[in-house]
Structures are given as C-alpha cells and as structure tokens.
Design a protein around this nucleic acid. Structure first.
Lengths: 123, 123
DNA sequence: TCCCATACTTACATTTTTGATAGTACCTTA
DNA sequence: TAAGGTACTATCAAAAATGTAAGTATGGGA
C-alpha cells in the first residue's frame, strides 16, 4: 500500500468493477492482508494500537498503521487520540463498520466448513 | 498469481493468520481482483469461458484462467470440458460455492449502503 | 540528564499480483 | 489448402502490497 498510480490499467479496471458490482466494491474495502483480522478484534470492542499489535503477532507497526488508516478513510473504524504522553490512541468500529460484523462472522462460519470439506476431499 | 515463495515472511504470516482466523481463511479464497465478480455471475448459473470473458469486459484471458483455476482448486467452481472442436468448457459453482452466494449478496447490500453513507459524509 | 513508553513515519527491498502480447491445438467449414 | 473459432499457455513487464530497519516526538520518572 503505497501511492497508487491512477493511470494504470489495473487501477481503472478495479474502479470499473467496483462501479457496477457492489460486492466487489465491498470486498475492496475489507480486502487487505490484515483488514479482516483487525475487524474481528474490533468487533469485540475498542482497542488501543498496542493491543492490536499484540494480538496480531507478526504484523509490523507500518502495516498496522496502513491498514488502520485505510479502514479509517473508509469510515469503518473511528480513531480517538488522547492528548497524553506517552500517546494513547483508541480504535473502534463505526456504525457502518459494526454492520459488517455479522457478515464477517458468516464468512468465518463458511470458512470453517469449507476447510473441513476441502481437507476431506483432498485426503 | 505466479508461483509463490513459500519461504517468504509474507507467506508464513498469511498462513498463520489463516490458521487461527476462519474469516481470514475465507477472505483469502475469494479475495482476488476478479474472484467475487466471477462468483456473482456464476451464482446466476453455469457459464462458458467465453461468456465470462464477455461479461468482464477488461479481463485478460490470462487473468480469467488464473482466477478460475484458483477457484477450482479451492473447490468453489466445477469445470466441465466437452470433447468438441472448437472446445467448450463450462464453469459452475459447487455445493460449497453456492453456500457462499448469500454471504456475497449480503456483502453487496452492505457495500451499496456504505457507498451512500460514505459519499454523503464526504461531500 | 538520560532513558522509557507509545504511536507513529520514512526510505528502501522483496514478494505478489496483474497486464500486454504472442503463440498453441484441434476440427470444421469454405 | 487456408481460415476460423474456442479455450487456453508462455514470457515478459509493470504495478501494487507487504516486509525490514531505522528514526521521530514528548513528557514523566530514575
């Protein structure tokens, strides 16, 4: 996630797809390596930056920041900064972010089932 | 989507996340540039390769092939080859693929709503 | 005075995904 | 004999996502 090149074919394809398919639009919002994992924790409630970092063992601060910024831009999470030293910042889901909760959970259930089905037919 | 490097940090992070989060597991399966769009059409029924290509105007044959192969590997779609010339190949959702249908539709509804909310607060 | 904790930022390297372009096989029909 | 239609594959290049490593600010406490 650096700057994107708005003249690339990739970019315009993505935009075009988003525009005539809400499903794709939605998946682009929550589809980063860590986005869904972050959401899973936030569904359970508010978290500080450092707490999220602990729960996502291998994430770098850079990636956590990037993903949170993206979620914030998309109004999925709300960021609250406390004027303290050392700093304290809390992240929580917005209203529309919360509405994503049940869908993500359904997806999780499906994933669990899928894993079983797939494993059994492979072996 | 070429060969992946199974020794990379990225790879092992992804695997670790998948293993303790079914939601992430699921999202990795359906999260490619075109996967959800393809699924959307297949939810409506069987399609030939060329039909999908027409419906996804800017997709290259390469990408369509890659995505379909990935979906097939993950047992989301079933591929049927007819021994004809010129060739005819049909793609359809499997049972577990069909179960994804309602979830994708919910995601679509959410996306539609999100778009409205986000646009109104931005302007 | 110096170190600490927290939540970042910056610059660069690597890996992964996607795109562009050309080619393949095969039988049918003209 | 040649062209056409379908579903691909192969190679190379570009772009995007992620990872690594180091640095920043600030006030409080030792």
């Amino acid at each position: 996630m650096g700057k994107i090149k708005e003249t690339s074919t990739h970019f315009s394809n993505k935009e075009a797809l988003e525009n005539d398919c809400h499903e794709v639009y939605a998946s682009n919002i929550i589809g980063g390596q860590w986005s869904i994992a972050i959401c899973c924790y936030l569904i359970a409630g508010k978290h500080r930056f450092g707490e999220l970092k602990k729960r996502l063992p291998n994430i770098t601060e850079r990636m956590l920041t990037l993903q949170l910024r993206k979620l914030e831009e998309n109004k999925i999470v709300k960021r609250t900064v406390y004027a303290q030293v050392p700093p304290k910042v809390e992240y929580e889901l917005t209203e529309i972010g919360l509405e994503l909760g049940p869908i993500i959970k359904e997806l999780g259930k499906w994933g669990e089932k899928h894993k079983v089905v797939c494993d059994s037919t492979t072996t």
